[in-house]
Amino acid sequence: MPSDAPTTPRAGDALLLVDVQNDFLPGGNLAVSHGDEIIPPLNRLIQSFSRRSLPIFATRDWHPPQHCSFHEQAGPWPPHCVAGTQGAAFPANLALPHDTAIVSKATTVDQDAYSGFGGTELHYQLRGAGARRLFVGGLATDYCVLNTVRDAVAKGYEVLLLTDAVRAVDVQPGDGDRAVDEMQKLGASLIASAQVAD
């Protein structure tokens, strides 16, 4: 269960949005059920962090057309988030400020990356921004969010998982719940976006 204690973003905090992209939203090539429901709480957090001049990071899949994760290359997924396409874009109603740090991952044909830290400069960028505590939301709970949180904890960040701002693929029923349990066992705290001060 999420903690009920209110939390105020402060120096050393960063908001990390994981793969909130059109192809993962309803109507996309790899849609996460109810994925669009995370956008209102994320927008509220974006405003809260922006008002405090705290850093905001957004990861994205940015795949070449023949990416190894696609069915045609014997991968597990349909083609999605091909670099430069509308499917790879952030949704128009996600209110990312102009100074959001965009982190592209899985950008080569032969390498996949579920974690935002996988083959990217995210760790160095977070350290450069002075981030020690990460507020994490995005898609999908049981894949890219889980792996990003695993790596964040392993690298020494305190992680607050925004429970109402994540949704799961649930290839196997309950995958999302199991992912949340794992993240909590790793040391992530569970928090609802409404507990974060405006």
Results as ranks from 00 to 15, higher is better:
Ile46Gly: 07
Leu42Ile: 12
Gly87Glu: 04
Phe57Ala: 13
Leu45Lys: 02
Ser48Cys: 05
Val18Asn: 09
Trp62Gln: 03
Phe57Gln: 09
Phe90Asp: 03
Ala92Phe: 01
Ser50Glu: 11
Gln66Leu: 14
Ala31Gln: 13
Leu54Asp: 04
Ala83Thr: 02
Ser48Ile: 03
Asp19Cys: 11
Val82Thr: 05
His67Leu: 13
His63Pro: 13
Thr59Ile: 15
Gln73Ser: 06
Arg60Asn: 04
Ala74Trp: 09
Ala74Pro: 03
Ile56His: 08
Ala92Leu: 04
Phe90Glu: 04
Ser48Ala: 14
Phe57Lys: 10
Val32Trp: 06
Phe90Gly: 08
Arg51Ile: 07
Phe70Cys: 05
Thr85Lys: 03
His71Phe: 15
Pro76Lys: 02
Ser48Leu: 03
Phe90His: 13
Arg52His: 08
Arg60Cys: 14
Phe57Met: 10
Pro78Trp: 01
Gly35Pro: 08
Ser53Gly: 06
Pro79Met: 14
Gln86Thr: 02
Val32Asn: 06
Cys68Ala: 14
Ser53Asn: 13
Asp19Val: 10
Phe70Gly: 07
Gln47His: 08
Trp62Asn: 05
Thr85Pro: 08
Pro79Phe: 09
Arg44His: 07
Pro76Ile: 01
Ser69Ile: 04
Ser69Leu: 14
Pro76Gln: 02
Phe49Asn: 01
Gln21Asn: 07
Ala74Glu: 13
Pro65Met: 06
Asn43Gly: 09
Glu72Met: 08
Glu72Trp: 00
Gly35Ser: 05
Arg44Asp: 12
Ala58Gly: 12
Thr59Cys: 14
Gly27Lys: 08
Pro91Gly: 07
Pro79Thr: 15
Gln66Trp: 05
Gln86Ala: 10
Leu30Asn: 13
Asn29Ile: 00
Leu25Gln: 04
Ala74Phe: 12
Arg44Pro: 05
Asp23Leu: 09
Ser50Leu: 05
Ala92Val: 09
Pro55Ala: 11
His67Met: 12
Glu72Arg: 07
Leu42Asp: 00
Glu72Ile: 10
Asp19Lys: 09
Arg44Lys: 12
Gln73Ile: 10
His80Gln: 14
Asp61Thr: 09
Phe24Arg: 06
Arg52Lys: 11
Cys68Asp: 06
